[in-house]
Structure formats: structure tokens, C-alpha cells
Design a protein around this nucleic acid. Structure first.
Lengths: 229, 229
DNA sequence: TCCATTCGGATTGTTTACAATTCTCGCGCC
DNA sequence: GGCGCGAGAATTGTAAACAATCCGAATGGA
């Protein structure tokens, strides 16, 4: 019963495709998401697209405006800070648990991800490099052997991708592979404290490369133009 | 334009109603959720009910079986452990942040919740008491002033309610108000370390009152009956 | 020339009906 | 009496049509 009759995309695959497109910036923050075009592009019914959009809205990856349609979410500075804070929490715990539970196989996967990330960086394939970086963090979550925690972290990683797209300082996207290596070493050594500390410095690095201060998110028109009158 | 013409329930209100019903056990784990009956009971269209069910499935509060319908989720022992672990993480961070940021108003709300919880306990209204207990934890999350974190915790609280419904040791549901008071004191004093510690012991208490060991979740029929043959 | 208004196209929201699958109950057979 | 089988009912999955709303362009007037 595996004949190619299975036209169209299954619901979860559909969601995954859209999420991936948003995560690596092919659909940038603020982009419009017309139901019918999505349906055609993904070979699905409009109803299904609608459902997927509703799901993504619940994850705060898209914003649903009544009677106006769906848009890729565009986090405010405020929200970006909250996401970073939550992610710091999740990443630290994940690193600690991974150090306690990681199997050799899981460690191998992490190193693999970092290697692929490095290759992508070397060939200036930023999009792919950032994707591999996410893959690395997901690999850690897998090693932590807690699907609930992994889901939380995955969601925060997705939203982080959005904040990076909006607030990344010029030319400074993505992680530093050096940090990654130190992290893996601590996890492989089974040292939770060191792993957590390494993750903390890693996250500090990531956050410090964000431009959360200077952007005036919403300007008051009157204020802005008062002295030009 | 506020005339009562607004028949039926708005989508988010709908979701909230269902979630609440699941949280406080009016819809117990494993319960069937026929779309049409829900639609009638909530005065909504079937399409909308469908969408809400899909949302709740994404939160793992209901399980969606293709062609078979929706059921209130019934966490396995494994999953229950994972939820507890994740919740411990979220609660500790929340308590710490609340201690750093709580306003007098927020503290007042916490005390209010605890008081109402105590009243409910005294009148043997278990369901209401547990609900107030959740409200208390939510109040802390609000004081932590991080909506992202608050959403994560809220989701984990919902799922915790499910695990409690399945695995709570006989007659030992809910939190201990004594713990709550100590926690609030630490938060009010603005002492993050003490608050986090208090929350940790509180969570340890909650978890220790769960029966996660003895239940054989899925029995192998052959094994179970081998020596009776 | 600029602004307000209105009309048409496009997109979203909702309902309806229909197709497919599963469950239940009753019948016949072993 | 118990088991398997099959028809009917009930429920879910899907698609299509309709209604409501919003956006943009063209028109008319100041």
C-alpha cells in the first residue's frame, strides 16, 4: 500500500516544511503568508494550510491577524529578551542532563553537526551553517533524553532564529564553533557543572552579539517629527 | 457594537474552556472527545472544535488518533517523569526571577491564591483547591515578568494536572500550603537563592507524592498470564 | 494638485455537504 | 454457548461553495 497515490503532503510534514522555511529565513519575519499560495506551493488543501498556520501561531512563529491573514512573526525587543532568558534556562538544564546521560553515539552526532557547521561556514553558506548550529543544539537535547524538555528547547530555538533574523548584529550571526567544542568535551567527560558553565558562556556570547538596545521598535510619529516642523 | 448578538464562543475562549475542563479533571485522562458533542456543548461549529483539538494535541493535552477521534491524553510513567523534570527546571527559574522582580501587587495576588486554596481545602473541595494551587504557581510566573517563560510553565502545569490525575498517590493530591507560604516569604524578601531553594523542596514534595514506580503501564499479556496457565 | 469616496478584486472566515473509515449490533454457523 | 461475519449507524476526514471583510485603484470634487 505504498504506491505513489499518496498525493499531497501529510499534515506533520507540512508543518515541518513551513517551520523549516521560517527557521532558516527563506520566509523572513514580517513576510505575508497567503493561504492559497501556500496551499499550492505545498500541494495541500487550504483547510490544512489553515490548520498548520493555526499551529504555528500557537508557537508564536506566525502571527494571525483576523481578516488580514498570516504573517511570519516579528519579535519585539522585549520579546527577544524573554526568549533569550527562557532559552538560557533550557539550554543550561539540557547541557547538564546531557553530561549526565549522553551515550557515545549521541556525542558522535554532536561532533558531526559541528563539523558540518564548520564546513558550511568555510564555504560561506551562512544559512546552512546556522541550520547546522541549531542541529547541534538539538543533538544535545536528544542526548538529554527528555522529549518534553527537547520540545521546549526546539520551540525556543525556532523563535531564536526569528530574533536573530531581526536583531543580529551586522555580520555576526550564528554560534562560535570554538564554544561548541568545549561544550562537547565537557558533556563527553560527563561533567555536568562544567557543561552547564560552558553552555552559559556560549549563550552569553550569542546574546551579546544581538543588537537589542538601539532599535526603536515603535516610534511615536508626533515625537519623532516635532522638532522638524 | 457590543450587542449580545455575539452568539457562540470565540476561538480562544473555546480553547480555554476545554483546557480548563481537562485541567481540573472534569474530562479525565483517556476520555473520548467526540467532535460533534463538543460542538454542541460549547456552542461552536465542528470546524472550530477540530481546530481547538488540533491545538490541544500540539500541547500534548489530547491525543489525536486518525479516523478514531480525540482523547484526553494519558501520560505514561516515562512521560510523567519527563514532565516533572522539565517543570522543576521551569519552576526554579521562575521562582528566582520572581524574587528579583516581584511587585507588592504580585505578592498580594500570591497570598490571595494561597488563602483561597486553604479555604477550598478546608471545605474538602479538592478540585477547586488544586485549581487555586495552579493559580498560585501561575501568579509566580506572572511576577517573573517573562511571558515566554510563563507560557512554558503554564503548559507544564496543565500536563502536570494530567499526571496527577493518573499517578497521584491515594488521598495526596495537590500542594502543601505550608511550602507555599515559605516560598512567598522568600520572594517578598527579594532573595532569589532562598526562593529557588524553597521551590525546589516544594517540587520535591510534589514529586515524592506521585506513584511513579509501581504502576505497570503496559503489560505483556503473555507474560502476565504465563504462570496462571 | 491633493484629498475623500466608491467600486472591484482578492483574501479570509464559515458553513455545508459528501466520502471514507471505524464501531456496534445482530445474525448465522461451528 | 461462543465465535466470526456482515450490514447499518455513527464518527471522522476532506473538499467545495458561499459570505464577509479588507486592500487598492480609479473617480470626482475642492
Amino acid at each position: 500500500m505504498d504506491r505513489p497515490k499518496r498525493r499531497a503532503t501529510r499534515p506533520e510534514a507540512l508543518l515541518e516544511k513551513l517551520r523549516a522555511a521560517i527557521e532558516d529565513g527563506r520566509l523572513p519575519p514580517g513576510a505575508r503568508l497567503p493561504e492559497e499560495k501556500l496551499a499550492r506551493a505545498l500541494d495541500a488543501s487550504r483547510a490544512r494550510v489553515r490548520e498548520v498556520l493555526s499551529l504555528l501561531a500557537n508557537e508564536r512563529l506566525v502571527e494571525l491577524q483576523t481578516n488580514r491573514g498570516a504573517f511570519v512573526a516579528k519579535p519585539t525587543v522585549e520579546e527577544a529578551r524573554h526568549i533569550c532568558e527562557a532559552r538560557l534556562m533550557a539550554e543550561r538544564t539540557t547541557a547538564r542532563l546531557a553530561a549526565e546521560r549522553a551515550t557515545p553515539d549521541a556525542v558522535r552526532k554532536m561532533r558531526e553537526m559541528v563539523a558540518e557547521e564548520q564546513i558550511a561556514w568555510d564555504s560561506d553558506d551562512v544559512r546552512n551553517a546556522v541550520a547546522k548550529s541549531r542541529g547541534f543544539h538539538r543533538a544535545i537535547a536528544e542526548a538529554a533524553a527528555n522529549p518534553v524538555l527537547a520540545d521546549i528547547l526546539a520551540s525556543l530555538l525556532s523563535r531564536s532564529a526569528l530574533t536573530q533574523a531581526v536583531y543580529a548584529a551586522r555580520g555576526a550571526a550564528g554560534c562560535l564553533c570554538h564554544d561548541h567544542s568545549a561544550l562537547i568535551d565537557a558533556i563527553e567527560a560527563g561533567d555536568p557543572d562544567t557543561a552547564e558553565a560552558a553552555m552559559k558562556t556560549h549563550m552569553d556570547n550569542i546574546i551579546s552579539r544581538l543588537d537589542l538596545e538601539p532599535l526603536a521598535q515603535e516610534v511615536d510619529i508626533e515625537d519623532a517629527l516635532r522638532d522638524t516642523l
